[in-house]
């Protein structure tokens, strides 16, 4: 079986300062990898390399998926001056069959006309997470997905990710807190 992600000897340096080096891993269908490390150790950079946003200084990376990657980064990609409804339209998930389900779980179904700027950080994060919950990808990449989330939403997120793993998807995430997800871990 071919891995969905094959990383071999990845290194990255900024201005002669080595961020990480010799990162090698294979990630197969239905598997998750938890990237651990201190602040500034290069977790986000590694995730961006896998997304194709950043080029490694050295090493090879192969992703074997035809579908688009679902990436949830530090930035929410939400328009502050638009309503929740408009933002969902921009995410291209406005017509998804499960959208009402998640909106009511997050207690946001009656606030569709409220501007994002008027929501709390946690609520904004929940809206951003809809991109993940309504994804159509084989590869899910999450950079500190639990920041700003309450315990209940963290639980929903973990349950969702476990279900996606059972569906054969690949999850790559960085998190300072340990999540109840069956995953390998990689310390950088």
């Amino acid at each position: 079986m071919q891995p969905i992600i094959r990383a071999h000897n990845l290194s990255y340096k900024i201005n002669d300062k080595k961020l990480f080096q010799g990162i090698t891993f294979d990630l197969f269908k239905g598997k998750a990898l938890h990237i651990k490390g201190e602040n500034g150790s290069g977790k986000t950079t590694l995730l961006k390399i896998v997304c194709g946003l950043t080029t490694p200084t050295k090493g090879d990376l192969t992703t074997n998926t035809n579908k688009k990657i679902c990436y949830i980064g530090h930035k929410n990609a939400l328009k502050q001056y638009l309503s929740i409804e408009d933002n969902l339209a921009l995410m291209n998930v406005g017509n998804h069959q499960d959208i009402q389900k998640y909106l009511s779980i997050f207690d946001l179904d009656k606030s569709l006309d409220i501007n994002i700027a008027n929501l709390s950080f946690g609520q904004q994060k929940k809206i951003a997470l809809l991109r993940l919950f309504l994804n159509n990808s084989d590869l899910l990449i999450l950079d500190e997905p639990c920041v700003g989330l309450d315990m209940n939403t963290q639980k929903i997120l973990v349950e969702f990710l476990n279900q996606e793993l059972l569906n054969g998807k690949v999850v790559l995430f960085s998190s300072h807190i340990s999540l109840d997800i069956v995953s390998d871990s990689l310390s950088i």
Binding site: L53, I69, Y71, G73, A77
Partner: peptide, 15 residues
Amino acid sequence: LEDFNDGSLEQYAIS
């Protein structure tokens, strides 16, 4: 600039 700051450009570049 706005899309860069809020992360939309990242999403465009990936998707």
